[in-house]
Design a protein around this nucleic acid. Structure first.
Length: 714
DNA sequence: ATAAAGTGACTTTTT
DNA sequence: GTCACTTTAT
């Protein structure tokens, strides 16, 4: 088999690069996944490396699955034994196997973002700290950042009083995790690195095993991940990383693109290979992307080029507000589909924040067009889904106090706050976890209740304990699906949800969806089910086979491509996001985010901004994104004479009728964005006034008077 | 103990 | 406008 077939010279060079460190700097659409998979195929099929000795690490399950699928095509059964997975999944496997060296056992559960926040809140309450002064999110972010930087509790530096508070919360937070036999996302990396450092023999075993280490999206690694890679490659030094600093968009999660520079320092003998040829987009799209990203300082400029030709110009368009924007998108899609110019699945709509999806969804719904939204939170964040996962987690690991607290009174079974508190105290006095106590109680042991509990409360607890004990006993014999069915039946969960409303039905449908998912784990079992559910990412929910338009955040778009891309809400404050305004590094990342979005487009690109945006309900005038100014007009369709006009797409909204012209040729006017200009012409339309204005700075514009917020100057 | 009604705070991005 | 959390009434 020829592993170099259909690869360009740079790709080939990367695929057959000799042993030792290799750094591949790969622009968007340059075929980096091809390079990674062909490299592995070459190692196994060409050099005869056993797959057992190869590990490939990605950031999302989707990327891992895609790599596996492509390897299956290239290698067939020869690929068996390969380790391909996300950082967290690979660490998870190592931690379960090596649990004897660690302060938790191999049945540990993974606490997700919501659980983590709950614990922080609980701790803040315990320590009698004011949640207004110490916002749980922000305290948690500090803890997470420390962990990503490999700073353990004892080493947490204290310079301010706030640091001191965070350290106290961090300490207690960590105690609770361990008492619950639980890890958060950051712990998975942190404990693995700690394991490698504290147990040289273990490190040696893995370092010897992994002869070849391959890493995707290397620019998104954080300190902990980089440390882990160094440990795992410490014996063979065959570390092959692929990345693009211009696509680094996870700084807020601890990612540091400077790891790419660090790599070159730490491995001075590294081969560096540049992939610049783009196989995805037209040259106009690439030029747009470069115009945006070139403004970032301290970059090694890359020249993205394609053989696909210039293609169509990009569309930059102003819409009245977010609603009109959504409506415009839907109508454009409907039109292209109707004329046969494109298929529904060709389109993607991208935005900066999740909240922006709502109006888009409404517009699709109103038009009766199916669409798909990428985002796991949507599903896994739902109350009913979290409840059921909490039940399963509790059965799997009764020490999980977060889950116990969540479900002990759902559906209502007469166990209120007071009773729960008494249970917790009782458990503490006996030196067991509350879940453990209930389990034993339900299994026949009677705890020394004394006067602490009323007879009714005790009966409620006992009956819950009995259910828990029965499930716990059955869990090893039952596949996840059957266990879930049993829980649903015993708790009468459906009756609890079904309140006769549409919402109740929807919730039950969600439960059925989770049930379907559980069914896929018949052979792998509960542990894998719970782990996968905890580590699922938004990007993992992208379904390329659906042939419907895709709605997704710019972050979730990384690694994907679409024939037609709409980027909506290109307004200052949204992109760049206002929270980044006072942080230079963050602002550079906003720019990279737009760059990532633009480079997803193969053929057509729409950049849309609103004249008015609404910040939680209330509309206010908005500025176009500053990044739009960086795009050369010759790349933009009709750039010289933008018609600024409210789209007459929703018949419900009609502009106020105006009979007389307000503006006359020769008048001097001011526009909030375009500055001062002179009116050249004005005509009264059926329901509005259309004014042509020549602006000093931007030239001729056609404006609708009722929307353009023009003021007349003397 | 629970349901209903009221409050305030908040939205980047997510393994 | 939406959510989570708190207060209030039963």
């Amino acid at each position: 088999m020829d592993y170099l077939e259909s690869l360009n010279p740079q790709q080939q060079q990367a695929v057959v690069a000799g042993t030792g460190p290799v750094l591949v700097l790969a622009g968007p659409g340059s075929g980096k996944t091809r390079v990674l998979t062909h490299r592995i195929a070459y190692l196994v099929g060409g050099l005869g490396v056993h797959p057992y000795h190869i590990v490939a690490v990605t950031f999302t399950n989707k990327a891992a699955r895609e790599m596996e699928a492509r390897l299956q095509n290239l290698l067939g059964e020869q690929q068996r034994g390969l380790t391909v997975g996300t950082f967290h999944a690979v660490c998870g496997r190592i931690l379960r196997r090596e649990a004897e060296h660690l302060p938790f056992d191999s049945n540990y559960v993974i606490f997700d973002a919501d659980d983590q926040l709950r614990i922080v809140k609980q701790v803040l309450q315990e320590l009698d700290l004011d949640e207004k002064r110490y916002r749980p999110q922000s305290v948690h972010a500090s803890i997470s950042r420390a962990k990503n930087d490999l700073i353990f509790v004892d080493d947490f530096p204290v310079q301010t009083y706030r640091d001191e508070v965070v350290k106290r919360v961090y300490t207690r937070y960590q105690q609770i995790l361990l008492a619950s036999n639980a890890l958060d996302f950051d712990d998975m990396l942190l404990w693995t690195v700690l394991l490698m450092e504290d147990q040289p023999a273990v490190r040696e075993r893995y370092a010897r095993r992994f002869e070849h280490l391959l890493v995707d999206e290397f620019q998104d690694t954080n300190v902990a991940q980089y440390a882990l890679l160094r440990h795992l490659s410490s014996f063979h030094r065959n570390i092959f990383v692929v990345g693009d600093v211009d696509q680094s968009i996870y700084r807020w999660r601890g990612a540091d693109y400077r790891n790419v520079l660090r790599f070159e320092q730490d491995f001075p003998d590294a081969q560096v290979i540049l992939l610049e040829q783009n196989y995805r987009s037209t040259q106009n799209i690439l030029d747009t992307a470069m115009a945006v990203i070139d403004r970032n300082p301290h970059r090694t400029p890359k020249k993205l080029f394609t053989r696909r030709g210039r293609g169509q110009k990009i569309v930059v368009r102003e819409l009245y507000d977010d609603r009109e924007m959504a409506s415009y998108v839907v109508h454009r899609i409907a039109e292209d589909v109707a004329t046969g110019a494109a298929q529904p699945g060709d389109f993607a709509v991208m935005y900066r924040t999740n909240a922006q999806s709502r109006l888009l969804e409404e517009a699709f719904l109103a038009a009766g067009l199916p669409y798909k939204l990428v985002g796991a939170q949507r599903f896994y964040g739902r109350r009913e889904i979290r409840d059921l996962i909490a039940y399963l987690r509790l059965v799997h690991n009764p020490r999980d106090e977060v889950s116990l607290t969540r479900v002990i009174n759902v559906p209502r079974r007469g166990i209120g706050n007071k009773t729960l508190l008494t249970l917790q105290e009782l458990a503490r006095s006996l030196g067991v976890s509350p879940g453990g106590l209930l389990l034993r109680w339900g299994g026949g042991e009677t705890p020394p209740i004394g006067e602490a509990l009323s007879a009714r409360a005790a009966a409620s607890l006992l009956s819950f304990g009995e259910m828990l004990a029965a499930w716990h006993q059955a869990k090893d014999a039952l596949p996840p699906l059957e266990l879930m069915d049993r829980i649903l039946a015993d708790t009468r969960y459906r009756e609890y949800l079904d309140d006769g409303t549409e919402e109740g039905q929807e919730r039950w449908d969600n439960v059925m969806e989770l049930r379907r998912l559980a069914g896929e784990y018949h052979d792998r079992g509960l542990v894998d089910f719970l782990e996968d559910v905890a580590l699922i990412s938004d990007q993992d929910t992208y379904d390329e086979d659906a042939n419907v338009p895709t709605l997704l955040t710019l972050h979730a778009a990384k690694g994907l491509e679409f024939p037609v891309v709409f980027i909506v809400g290109l307004n200052d404050g949204t992109l760049p996001h206002f929270r980044s305004f006072d942080d230079e590094e963050a602002m550079q990342e906003e720019r990279r985010l737009l760059y990532v979005g633009i480079t997803r487009a193969k053929d057509r690109l729409y950049l849309l901004y609103a004249l008015n945006k609404s910040t939680y309900g209330y509309p206010e005038p908005a500025e176009p994104s500053r990044y739009l100014d960086d795009i050369p007009p010759e790349l933009v369709e009709g750039a010289r004479s933008t018609v600024t006009r409210k789209q007459d797409l929703s018949p419900r909204r009609t502009a106020p009728v105006r009979l007389e012209a307000q503006f006359r040729p020769g008048m001097r006017v001011r526009h909030p964005h375009w500055g001062e200009g002179m009116v050249l012409n004005s005509t009264v339309d059926a329901d509005d006034e259309v004014v042509d204005v020549f602006f000093e700075d931007v030239g001729l514009k056609r404006l609708v008077a009722s929307l353009a917020r023009l003021t007349v100057l003397r």
